[in-house]
Amino acid sequence: MASQAHVETLALREQFDTEAQQKDASTLGMWIFLITEIMFFGGMFLAYTVYRGAFPMVFAVASSSLALILGAVNTVVLLCSSFTMVLAVRAAQLGQQRAIILFLILTLLLGGVFLGVKAYEWKDKFEEHHIPGPTFHLEGVATDQQGHAQLFFSLYFAMTGLHALHMVIGVGILTFLIFQTRKGRYTADYMTPVDVAGLYWHFVDIIWIFLFPLLYLIDRHMK
């Protein structure tokens, strides 16, 4: 919209009667969006369940080929980012502008670290010929079962790829919030965007909380 001379702090949109109504609507809207995300990832979790049930041994071998340390470190990084995010939301509830910006930047950085580690892992997969396709080969799996191993890596790339895409979107949202906070848009009375962005960030974290054991930790003891 057109640039406004004064900074709107209590941004009540015209379709709402009260600020409480507007906040309720935004929060409910975000939660409903998150259940659509549950169902979106749910389709892949279903495919994972079906194929892990069908090929348990191959999945265990393929899972063990993933870098456990990197996966675990990334889990910790993401949990740290959730912690800083919740502190940013808390700072917004208290109306502490500088603290909001600080914690949002920390969250952003941690998100960046996660994506960097992820990119490094994918590069490794590429060099190890673990990308599904004609050149795919996984050591320790019989020739007639290479296809099953490809299914694991197809799921691995689809799931971590879509998770990473959500992270990238999250990073974009955080950047937007940082600029808006610097303009002084958010106060203790109006901080809904920070609040719902927090919900989104934590949700993406929860997806990873499940991806980590499902992809990285299948029967590690067998190796």
Partner: peptide, 15 residues
């Protein structure tokens, strides 16, 4: 060619 439903790889088109 990331096969999820591809029967050649052991995937399940019924899925």
């Amino acid at each position: 060619h990331i096969g999820i439903f591809d029967p050649v790889l052991g995937g399940d088109p019924v899925l």
